[in-house]
């Protein structure tokens, strides 16, 4: 329908690439509702301050209270019994259903965690997956073994998930998210994360610091490595494949498909290894897992041994070849493919 208009005297739209119709409809609807609301609200116009918020006089500095959002948001309430049980219901109910329908993850590599899981009360660990999509967190929560799942905290970008009260509350409740400032991680943020680990919670932290902008990964930041060396919680490298195709950054609709989650061997900083080196090792481990997802364990191992693992961040050149390579990578992937491909006759207009 794009490009058609209901006006008789214009036969063709000038820009057949736009989906403008929805905007027109929305605008007309909003205009109607607005008119009705305006009429209904007319008597309210008389009521100024104190019924409405006061305006500040000119030249007056209104002291601003810290709004308690962003990385100052206190998520402690989300770890209280009531919130925990509510979250349990969310994770086992709607989230489970949603993850299965949207992403149907194939989880592998859990055998590498058995040593950690074999004890009664497994120690807290830090999961360090790559990051392509908002649904990564849901997929991760569902894929992580149950003994960690219910005491799992997610480090989430303070400026994105905690910038409005409702978002903050929802993230804290449903994901048990903790705000971290991805710009410069403050002392307070680090202390908070260390405390939740000390309390026996495991942590998901995306070392890339944000979702991939173009389908390729980004360089790992050192936060996870630093946290691990300070808390001696092991890092579990994880590679998630396919979520970027389902709901990547900038996407405005879900295209359900398949995903693969591959857990790697737990890592601990070696004696005398500094954070930077450890971080590099984590990044390499995730890259290796990415390779393993696309090829097989043996190929990936050999590639890793010879230093030929494809980098997560893709080829260095910055042109069409980068996109080209991405397409190649995606072809190799079994994940991300639509489960039911809807076959249609080509639209010939």
């Amino acid at each position: 329908m794009a490009g058609r208009t209901s006006h008789q005297y214009i036969r063709r739209g000038q820009r057949p690439d736009g989906a403008h119709r929805s905007i027109h409809v929305a605008q007309r609807a909003a205009s109607m509702v607005e008119g009705a609301v305006r009429t209904a609200a007319r008597p309210l116009a008389r009521y100024g301050f104190p019924y409405r918020r006061p305006t500040a006089p000119k030249h007056v500095v209104v002291p601003r209270k810290p709004n308690g959002l962003g990385d100052t948001y206190d998520t402690e309430w989300a770890r209280q019994p009531l919130a925990r049980s509510l979250r349990g219901v969310i994770i086992e109910g709607p989230m489970r259903l949603a993850v299965r329908t949207i992403a149907s993850p194939r989880v592998s590599g859990l055998d590498r965690l058995t040593d950690l899981l074999r004890v009664d009360n497994p120690r807290p660990v830090i999961f360090a997956p790559n990051h392509h999509s908002h649904i990564d967190t849901g997929v991760m929560i569902r894929s992580i073994p149950a003994s960690w799942r219910h005491e799992l905290v997610v480090a989430a970008a303070a400026d994105y998930f905690f910038d409005a009260r409702w978002k903050a509350a929802l993230s804290a409740l449903a994901l048990n998210a903790i705000p971290i400032d991805r710009g410069a991680t403050s002392r307070a943020t680090f202390d908070r994360l260390r405390d939740v680990i000390a309390d026996g919670n495991s942590l998901i932290i995306y070392p890339e610091g944000g979702r991939s902008p173009d389908g390729w990964g980004q360089d790992f930041k050192g936060g996870a490595a630093y946290l691990s060396t300070r808390t001696s919680a092991p890092i579990i490298p994880v590679h998630i494949d396919g979520t970027g195709e389902i709901f990547g950054k900038g996407a405005n609709r879900l295209s359900p498909g398949r995903t693969a989650v591959l857990f790697g061997t737990p890592l601990l900083a070696a004696e005398g290894e500094n954070t930077r080196r450890f971080n590099e090792r984590i990044e390499a481990a995730v890259a290796r897992l990415g390779d393993e997802t696309l090829t097989d364990w043996w190929t990936a191992t050999r590639n890793a041994a010879s230093g030929r693992s494809p980098k997560l961040s893709g080829p260095d050149h910055n042109s069409w070849r980068r996109q080209w390579r991405l397409g190649e990578k995606r072809r190799g992937s079994t994940a991300g493919i639509r489960r039911r491909r809807i076959r249609r006759w080509p639209d010939l207009g």
Partner: peptide, 26 residues
Amino acid sequence: PRPGFVLDVDRSTPPTLFWRGEGFSL
């Protein structure tokens, strides 16, 4: 604590509080 100050009333200034015995008004 902030010191006292003199506010020049402009059109943005909200109505101000007056005591009225056992009550108040703006």
